[in-house]
């Protein structure tokens, strides 16, 4: 629940009911008042007062679905770039083997690591755990919905606009979309192999991707519903004119704002 629709600065007191506790983005000062430590909109969950940042980089949370790019193939693990100040690591033991068998990973598997994920490959994964100090996160792809991404394009948006949603793997006008909580969104044609995407599907992929870019520019919440709604609004717009000031105006008028935004 949002408190009041005001932007707070670091050091500002967050006005909240008696007995609230300081949560993410806040701290209790010496006078016992709850004070913001980042720019954002205050919100209260049960008794926990938080400040949702207006902008910033992604901070991992357990069980988040995210999209990353392999930055390094290391010893028994991959380092993954997820656009976060934290380090993301995918252990060899945290992936599904292509054969589907469950066993302890051998040295043989280590030699085949580049066949599973190579440098620069994109993948979807889930945050399995965070280290105690919060400096790095461990990822896992132990499910057939996670893994290497193909037949599509990546759109990077502000992670603050991608909230927690019931389904992060959704279908919008015939194409599949993965909403990564880290602000990386993958729009693709679901297919087991890497294929040439037919033109009519590609048009839809490009449309969905452009709509997501527009929502990001308009600073609106990005989720399956908002994308569908804007897709409907921009039905008539030609595909080569979709990324323009005109359609940005339409998006600003029609989509809903971010939680707590004035």
């Amino acid at each position: 629940m949002e408190l009041d629709r005001v932007l707070v600065m670091p050091g500002d007191e967050v006005r909240c009911p008696q007995g609230s506790m300081p949560g993410f983005g806040t701290y209790e000062n010496s006078e016992g008042k709850i004070v913001a430590n980042q720019i954002g909109y205050p919100a209260i969950y049960n008794k926990l007062v938080c400040v949702n940042p207006v902008r910033g980089r992604y901070i991992g949370e357990t069980s988040n679905v995210i999209i990353g790019r392999i930055a390094q193939v290391a010893n028994k693990r991959w380092k993954v770039n997820v656009g976060s100040p934290q380090e993301a690591v995918l252990h060899l033991s945290a992936i599904d083997l292509p054969t589907g068998e469950h066993r302890i990973r051998s040295e043989e598997d280590q030699l085949h690591m580049r066949e599973y994920f190579n440098y620069n490959d994109l993948l979807s994964a889930e945050v399995q755990s965070l280290t105690q100090d919060g400096k790095s996160m461990a990822l896992q792809t132990r499910s057939n919905k996670f893994g290497k991404l193909k037949n599509g394009m990546l759109v990077k948006v502000s992670p603050m606009l991608v909230g927690r949603m019931r389904h992060h793997f959704v279908q919008i006008s015939g194409v599949d979309v993965i909403f990564g909580r880290n602000g990386w969104i993958w729009v693709y044609l679901a297919h087991n192999a890497e294929v040439e995407v037919p033109l009519n599907v590609r048009q839809e992929i490009v449309r969905v991707a452009c709509v997501i870019k527009l929502l990001n520019l308009a600073k609106k919440v990005i989720c399956a519903e908002s994308v569908k709604e804007v897709m409907d609004c921009l039905k008539e717009v030609l595909i080569d004119e979709i990324l323009s000031k005109n359609s940005l105006g339409i998006v600003k008028e029609n989509a809903w704002g971010i939680e707590g935004e004035v």
Partner: peptide, 20 residues
């Protein structure tokens, strides 16, 4: 860029780029 490379090149051959 390896993951998207084929998608981008196919798109250019088909005459539709990633930004429409």
């Amino acid at each position: 860029m390896l993951s998207e490379k084929k998608f981008i090149i196919d798109g250019i051959k088909q005459g539709l780029r990633c930004d429409g």
